[in-house]
Design a binder for these strands. Sequence first.
DNA 1: GTGTTTCTTG
DNA 2: CAAGAAACAC
Lengths: 259, 259
Amino acid sequence: MTYRIATFNANSIRARLDIILAWLSRHRPNVLCLQETKVPDEDFPIKPIIQAGYQVVFKGQKSYNGVAVLCLSQPDEVSWGLGGDDREADVRLLSVRVDGLRVVNTYIPQGREVGTPHFAYKLDFFKRLGEYFQSGFSSQEPLIWAGDLNVALTDEDVYDPKRLSGQVCFHPDEQAALKAVAQWGLVDVFRRHHPEGRAFTFWDYRLPKSVDRNLGWRIDYIWVTQPLAERSTDAFVDLEPRRMPKPSDHTFLVADFEL
Amino acid sequence: MTYRIATFNANSIRARLDIILAWLSRHRPNVLCLQETKVPDEDFPIKPIIQAGYQVVFKGQKSYNGVAVLCLSQPDEVSWGLGGDDREADVRLLSVRVDGLRVVNTYIPQGREVGTPHFAYKLDFFKRLGEYFQSGFSSQEPLIWAGDLNVALTDEDVYDPKRLSGQVCFHPDEQAALKAVAQWGLVDVFRRHHPEGRAFTFWDYRLPKSVDRNLGWRIDYIWVTQPLAERSTDAFVDLEPRRMPKPSDHTFLVADFEL
DNA sequence: GTGTTTCTTG
DNA sequence: CAAGAAACAC
């Protein structure tokens, strides 16, 4: 049976609720990872999601960050954050076990400007995430790491690699940090199915007509361990939600598996 | 042929653009007077109005006030304000000649609290408006005075005359000031067709369920000189726009004439 | 450009 | 309750 997992940076789950519900109804993923829900837990829109037939786990705060995982099956073994006393990580990393799979949903810090404390925090977040996988899981087991990673890895992953080289989200230090995490034993399922070619998941609101001119970035990912890579049948970006009225600046990335 | 004129306090023309365009398309008034456009002239949404088949003249400012007149025919002899050096009156009174009629669109000051300088300005505005009609026009000619006058005249014009008596927008001094203007030779076309009965044009956002409980005020008017009063065939309040999502706190008042 | 919050106004 | 402004973040 085909098992579908998707990821979407909603940029406010409340502002995007209609788009998300329509997308769930149309694509019926087994799991949807959401980032930037931007809502305190007491205001999270649980009801319409339940009504759509999904289980939901989440953690958020006012204004910034916030992650959620929606599942057709009941998830178990839910955990948040990277351990230690970094409470911000709790609204950036949400891990669930569902249908016998481990799903780790992350909203990696954006980093603001190269050289700032925010940028250092981003690199450190990757480092701790690498340790998190290393010490907590086996890459021989089926594990999915999905989310907005706020890093484009190659020249094919940004609209203008020359101009953007060294900028935040396209800087060698970030790329190395992300690769180091993946080195543990993760495969970029989108690239597995599309080894070359541009396909973006994010288009800045601030660039006029960025979608029409395809001035985008591939910064949302679904990485999987080998047992799942072997069973992956397809991966694609769905442009449609980014072309709807009042879109997020990101769109949905989808991966299918034959389980 | 039936000639239709309407007035609407939009409470932001940008926030109400869809409601206004839908209403224009459905009711096709020859003239629509708008108040509280709340937009500087450089940001006024001219294009969609032209595309709807209307000419438009307007004057506004940031945040507060602002008036506009939309016409199927091209208006001429456009003027703003009451003369003198009161620049606020320029974004509260807009006069056009169109189809051989004089249309004076006003957004009368709300007055804030009885006894304040704002209340005094409101009374003075009425006084100067009386002089404006007296010295500039003949009540034997067809003239229309429309807009948000921020005064309810009778006990039939507010939801609770006992409680509201003496309050701002239902105070004897305001009522006298409005009547003194009308005394020049103007007929309240809504009351001409509905000599009694409650029919409101404004429901405060702050009163819970004010529309359902009909806790309203009749403070928007279309007044006409005798030549037009004789030709008036109907006048009505259209509740529908006040029941739509994201409504203004006012709704449309309409008057039809056989010209 | 599009979210968020907080403030001010009616 | 719902406009607008201003500040902040991405």
